[in-house]
Amino acid sequence: MCRVLIVDDEESVRAAIERRLKRDGLNVHAAAGESDAIEKIMGAEKPYDVVMTDMVMENPDSGLNVLKAAMEADIFTEVIILTAYGNIANAVESMKRGAFDYVEKNIPGIDVYDLMSIKIAQAIERRQSSMITVRRIDQFARTHEEG
């Protein structure tokens, strides 16, 4: 089962996302803010497959700090950033730093929860394909050594 970490400082938001993602059969964990998230990422026995984090929490760029921690723990952990609707500057910055994608929280007329569900599925797919690629490279290297 894929491990997903949800990071948001609003309890009701965490609960709603958790509930939605559990419906997709994911193993969902939650953190209540930047520092809680970094602690959980660093302390996890097995890295999270996907981290979905709000951008503005304790700091205006809390999301970027969570992204950095996640990638330090496992370069192949996919990170999705939640941003306020219309805050493209923030989204672009997070993409530059290696986020998988971003989701705007309040898009008028769109059910963002379904959108999140799709993005997470895509992120998991990319992580899995990255893992396969790594495994193949490993295999190839080993075959050559043996040869």
């Binding site: 609003e10 709603a16 609707y85 963002v112």
Partner: peptide
């Protein structure tokens, strides 16, 4: 926005 986001989740 956060409040509305949570309501949309419900």
């Amino acid at each position: 926005g956060n409040r509305i986001f949570a309501i949309k989740g419900d």
